[in-house]
């Protein structure tokens, strides 16, 4: 229902807020469908990062949407055809949550039955993510890295000069906020570390940890001032961190190659398979965490430092 409101409304600011709510609701649905890791990520990303990014953009552009004079007919037709194709497709689908559905038969049981012995990780999502389909995850880090450098490419030329007053995302004149936030930041960072290293047992892992870690610094930036955060993370530091996380991930793969295994085959990292897997997963998750943290901070800084339009 929220989605409909988004479609109808014209005040972009309200739309973004609704979109954040929509993301949180989706996260709730994910939990009810047993996808805790996904819910965690959706909440952090959809309701957190995406919303912040879109809001920063709105602040730099304009809030009100103009009335569209587009013809509504063709889009509607395309959408209806697409929807119809999908509904048609669902007619033969296995019933929802049926344990006998083919999805649950072929590949998945092996993960559920053996992943714990093979990798020593009880959170199967982490095991699949960081070991069985580790190569996909490397691709995912690469995507984040790509987006990071793309944003820097696009916005770095438009950074405002130091002496220009009035930051876009600056709350540093609110003393109460400042105090509360200062109290919270250490806990956020601590929580991020917990999420990073506890991903083996509970929901979490490098990506979620990276987002939370970055959120901690973003909050710091909001209350203490963007310039302070910038002085901690200069462009070259961020670039260095972004690249090193990705390189760490690839590096693990290269080491496994040199030790005679396939790319990202962690078994060769130690004499014992489970120990090897443990090290492999630990290191690549660390790589993910570093790149994601650095990229998120870099994006936030890039967005906040753009000169405001007159």
């Amino acid at each position: 229902m929220v989605a409909i409101a988004v479609a109808v409304m014209r005040d972009l600011f309200a739309i973004v807020m609704l979109f954040g709510i929509y993301s949180l609701l989706t996260a709730g649905i994910f939990v009810s469908l047993d996808a805790v890791d996904v819910a965690f990520t959706e909440a952090a990303v959809g309701a957190g990062i995406s919303t912040i990014l879109i809001l920063s953009t709105l602040a730099l552009t304009s809030r009100e949407e103009k009335k569209s004079t587009h013809s509504r007919f063709l889009p509607l037709l395309v959408v209806l055809v697409t929807g119809a194709t999908l509904v048609y497709g669902t007619l033969d689908m296995p019933a929802f949550s049926d344990p006998q559905a083919p999805v649950h038969q072929h590949v998945a049981p092996r993960y559920l039955d053996q992943a714990q012995q093979e990798t020593g990780v009880p959170n199967i999502v982490t095991a699949v993510l960081a070991s069985y389909r580790s190569y996909d995850t490397m691709g995912e880090v690469t995507v984040i890295f790509t987006a990071g450098i793309a944003v820097m490419l696009l916005l770095s030329a438009f950074r405002h000069r130091e002496d220009e007053a009035g930051n876009l995302n600056d709350l540093s004149h609110h003393p109460v906020l400042k105090y509360v936030a200062r109290l919270m930041i250490p806990f956020i960072l601590l929580f991020a570390l917990y999420v990073q290293f506890h991903g083996d047992y509970g929901p979490g892992g490098g990506f979620q940890a990276g987002v939370i870690f970055a959120a901690g610094f973003i909050l710091y930036g909001l209350v203490v001032g963007i310039d302070k955060t910038r002085s901690m993370f200069s462009d070259s530091v961020l670039r260095w961190l972004m690249a090193s996380g990705l390189l760490l991930y690839i590096g693990v793969g290269v080491v496994t190659l040199l030790l005679g295994g396939e790319f990202l085959n962690y078994n060769v990292l130690a004499a014992d398979q489970v120990k090897g897997q443990h090290w492999g997963i630990f290191l690549v998750e660390l790589g993910v965490g570093i790149t994601v943290t650095a990229t998120m901070i870099a994006m936030f800084l890039a967005f906040s430092e753009v000169r405001r339009p007159e």
């Binding site: 996808a35 990014l53 552009t61 993960y111 199967i124 389909r133 987006a147 944003v151 990506f207």
Partner: peptide, 30 residues
């Protein structure tokens, strides 16, 4: 247990999604 594989795939897809959004927003500002 529920099937973990779709969860893994979607974790990846969410990340790809936010990356795309960030890039799009930077483009819009420009």
């Amino acid at each position: 247990y529920s099937n973990p594989l779709p969860h893994v795939l979607i974790l990846t897809a969410i990340v790809v999604g936010v990356a795309t959004t960030a890039l799009a927003m930077a483009l819009i500002i420009r």
